[in-house]
């Protein structure tokens, strides 16, 4: 299934992605001939039942679980051809990608501001600049007053906001979110989804969100549904 939006340089362009686990009798096709283009500033939802291949697609786009076949280009730059990297994937992740998960996955021994700061420092930003930028991001996301707190002292919603701030730290062209509202109540879940929209529209990042939550689909620019490893367009918001 091809769900592309041509004419502009896509934030991410995946072409005929296939992921096969095992071989012979144990072969499982987790993702089958999936193509997808998402523009900067666009927020896209990936829906589908468990085991449909949503996370497989997300990890392939996140360059942590290469597809068996297919090509991925991010910001117009080809980065994967099948399972062959065309660039230093770790460095590319550092500079161009942001991740948000169901759990915030904050580093427990770092404060909120340090969790954001570390993402900048591993991208060679000086500590002072990183600190300033991290505080700006926390302020942007409304959790600046908790900057000095360890994750254990933050609520689930606050932790998720810090995780979003961390994902935004290096001004990525693509943010990948895997069920980011699953651990939140509907109100906070919607707040996070709206946050993604705001980030995408104000900062020009493309956001792909894997979600089961159908109550906040109205915030997405486009939705896709995955079933049995295949991708098809969902209803438009």
């Amino acid at each position: 299934m091809n769900a592309s939006t041509p004419n502009r340089v896509a934030a991410v362009a995946a072409e005929r992605l296939t992921k096969v686990y095992g071989s012979g009798n144990t072969e499982v096709v987790a993702m089958n001939d999936v193509s997808l283009q998402v523009q900067r500033g666009e927020v896209v939802a990936l829906l589908g039942p468990s085991g449909a291949g949503k996370s497989t697609l997300l990890t392939a786009l996140g360059l942590v679980n290469p597809p068996t076949r297919g090509r991925i280009a991010i910001g117009g730059q080809p980065v994967l051809d099948g399972d062959q990297p065309l660039t230093d994937l770790r460095a590319f992740r550092r500079q161009h990608l942001g991740f948000v998960f169901q759990k915030a996955n904050l580093i427990p021994f770092l404060t909120a501001v340090e969790n954001v700061q570390v993402a900048l420092e591993i991208n060679e930003v000086t500590p002072r600049q990183a600190r300033r930028r991290a505080l700006e991001l926390l302020d942007y996301l409304g959790v600046a007053e908790r900057a000095g707190n360890l994750p254990e002292a933050l609520s689930g919603g606050q932790q998720q906001r810090v995780a979003v701030a961390r994902a935004l730290a290096n001004d990525p062209s693509l943010i990948l979110a895997d069920e980011p509202t699953a651990a939140l109540d509907s109100h906070r879940g919607r707040q996070v989804m709206e946050l993604f929209c705001r980030v995408a529209h104000e900062r020009g990042a493309a956001v792909i969100v894997v979600t089961h939550d159908h109550r906040a689909l109205d915030v997405f620019d486009r939705t896709f549904e995955m079933e049995d490893g295949r991708l098809r367009p969902g209803h438009s918001a």
């Binding site: 996140g62 770790r90 460095a91 590319f92 992740r93 990608l97 991740f99 021994f109 570390v118 591993i122």
Partner: peptide, 10 residues
């Protein structure tokens, strides 16, 4: 946490 740092590109 180390896996997270790797994912972030450390």
């Amino acid at each position: 946490d180390l896996a997270m740092l790797k994912l972030m590109g450390a």
